[in-house]
Amino acid sequence: MNWTQIADVATMSGGILYLMPILLLIALTVSIERFLFLNRMVRLGNEAALAVEDLPNLQGRALAEIAEKSAFPFRAILERPVRFPHIKDSGRLSEILQEAVMRQVPVLDKRLWILDTIVTLAPLLGLLGTIIGMFHAFQVLNNAAQNPTLITGSVAEALLATAAGLIIAIVGLVAFNGLHNRMRYVVHQMETLRTMLINRLEGLDHSHALIHSEAQPLIYAAAEA
């Protein structure tokens, strides 16, 4: 099939086939960009978790230094205990960290709606192109007696629009599900980081309580002496 035949088929579909390469290009561009972005987020999340894992508590400059070296979206979570050092209640800190997590999720989900729309739109446009092509196919019925293959060839060409739409939808659906699963993993990393910070606050409070309980007998002994 040469370019002239391709142009004729695209014209017979009402121009729908001209849109299919554009939709495919948009889907591939969004998929590649989001894949590279989310892969980078996974790597940064692992680095942040390993850095926080070595912290005994949330005191000192260690957490602030980790936050400065981290990047979006994990920096927003690590900065919360640094910005609110007076909070010693784990429940209150959990709410503040959860707020930070919720504010970052829409940015991770950015542009995935385009891919979701293409997955739904491409088959519908392909079907519309086929219907328009069928109108042209039925117009050749008067000449079918002289050329019986003319009608079948026109129907086959009309079905190309549906096939193109289905191919784009399949590619987009696989990419969308993979990216959505990757995004959920990044959110899981942020939730894990939130839990790690809360646990280190609990460890700090527990260490203070332990020191205080060990110091009580010494205070009583000194008072009795």
Results as ranks from 00 to 15, higher is better:
L19P: 00
R75L: 03
N199Q: 10
A223V: 01
I26T: 09
L58Q: 08
V82C: 12
A71L: 14
I96Q: 13
H212V: 06
G91D: 14
M1L: 10
V101W: 01
L25S: 12
T4I: 09
L193I: 07
M183V: 01
Q146E: 13
G172R: 10
H136C: 00
Q189N: 02
L97A: 06
L55I: 05
I22H: 01
T117E: 01
N177A: 13
P56W: 05
N46I: 03
A221I: 00
M12W: 00
Y220C: 00
D54Q: 15
R34M: 06
S154F: 07
Y18R: 03
L44Q: 15
A71R: 15
M196Y: 03
E214W: 04
N39D: 09
I16Q: 03
I6Y: 07
R34N: 11
N57P: 00
I32T: 08
Q139F: 00
R111S: 10
V119N: 10
P81D: 05
I132N: 03
A49Q: 13
F138Y: 08
P106A: 10
I77L: 15
L63Y: 05
M183K: 14
N57M: 04
A27S: 14
L159I: 08
L218E: 01
R184E: 14
A158H: 05
T29M: 12
E65Y: 04
L50H: 13
V140F: 01
Q5V: 08
L128P: 04
H180A: 13
G172Y: 08
L166E: 01
D116Q: 12
L159G: 02
A67E: 14
L121C: 10
G178C: 11
L159M: 15
A169L: 07
L55T: 07
A163G: 06
I219T: 09
A67C: 09
F176K: 14
W3T: 13
E68C: 08
N46C: 03
